[in-house]
C-alpha cells in the first residue's frame, strides 16, 4: 500500500483522480492529460512516424490497441502480480501485444508495415503504455482501466493525427494522399523530415500551453 501513495505523489496530475466520476477517466486523456501535448510521453513514434496523416493514424491506432489490451490484462492480473516483478510482468504483457499488433499489421498490408518500419516494435518502449499500466491499471478495476486506456489511446491518436496532418499538408501538399493544393505548390520538404516533426510538435505545444495559460488566468 505504501508504494501506492508514493506513486500517486509522483504522478502529479493523477492525484486529482480520487473519487472522480468514471466518464472523467475517459475525457481526461483526450484533453486535460493528453499524453502527447500535456504529458509529453512517447515522443519517439510521435516524431518519427507522423510524416503523413495515414502513418500517424495507423501508428496511433496500433499504440491505442496495445494500450487497451495491456491495460485490461494488467488490471485483471493486478492482485496476482507481486510488486517486485511488476515492471517485468508489464513489459512482458506489452511486448506480447506489440508482437500481435506487428503480425496483424503485416497481415493487413505489407505496404503499411513497410512504412511504419521498426516503430511498431518500438511501441514496447513507449513510456505512455508502461506509465498507464503502472500508474493506473495496476490500481483500478477493469472497467475504469478500459475507459482510461480508451481516453489516453484516443488522445494519442488525436495528437499524432494533428502532427501528421500538418506535416503532410505542408510537406507533401496532400492529406491522406489526396492533393489539396494546385500541383505547382512548393512542398516544404523539411516538414516530412525528422526536423519537421520537432517544429510541428513545438508549434502544437505552444498552442496548447497558450490555451492552458488563458484558461488558468480566466
Amino acid at each position: 500500500m505504501g508504494n501506492q501513495i508514493h506513486d500517486k505523489a509522483n504522478t502529479g496530475f493523477l492525484s486529482s483522480l480520487k473519487g472522480s466520476p468514471s466518464t472523467d477517466e475517459f475525457i481526461k486523456g483526450l484533453w486535460r492529460d493528453n499524453p502527447v501535448f500535456i504529458q509529453v510521453l512517447g515522443m519517439c513514434p510521435v516524431l518519427a512516424v507522423s510524416n503523413t496523416a495515414e502513418n500517424a493514424l495507423a501508428m496511433g491506432l496500433a499504440t491505442a490497441f496495445v494500450l487497451l489490451m495491456s491495460n485490461i490484462l494488467v488490471s485483471s492480473l493486478r492482485n496476482f502480480i507481486p510488486k517486485q516483478v511488476r515492471i517485468a510482468s508489464y513489459i512482458l504483457i506489452i511486448a506480447t501485444f506489440v508482437t500481435i499488433t506487428d503480425y496483424a499489421i503485416q497481415a493487413i498490408s505489407v505496404e503499411l508495415h513497410k512504412s511504419l518500419g521498426a516503430f511498431i516494435s518500438l511501441i514496447v518502449v513507449n513510456c505512455l503504455i508502461l506509465s498507464r499500466a503502472e500508474a493506473f491499471a495496476s490500481k483500478n478495476s477493469i472497467g475504469k482501466s478500459i475507459l482510461d486506456a480508451l481516453g489516453m489511446g484516443l488522445g494519442f491518436v488525436f495528437a499524432l493525427f494533428c502532427l501528421g496532418a500538418v506535416r503532410e499538408i505542408m510537406g507533401n501538399g496532400s492529406l491522406f494522399g489526396f492533393p489539396i493544393f494546385p500541383s505547382t505548390f512548393q512542398n516544404w520538404i523539411v516538414m516530412i523530415l525528422p526536423a519537421g516533426g520537432f517544429f510541428t510538435l513545438a508549434i502544437w505545444l505552444l498552442i496548447f500551453n497558450l490555451l492552458k495559460q488563458k484558461k488558468s488566468i480566466a
Binding site: Q186, W188, I189, V190, M191, L193, A195
Partner: peptide, 10 residues
C-alpha cells in the same frame, strides 16, 4: 539551414 532542408532544389 531551414531553407536548405525545406527547399533543397531551389
Amino acid at each position: 539551414a531551414v531553407l536548405q532542408a525545406a527547399f533543397p532544389v531551389a
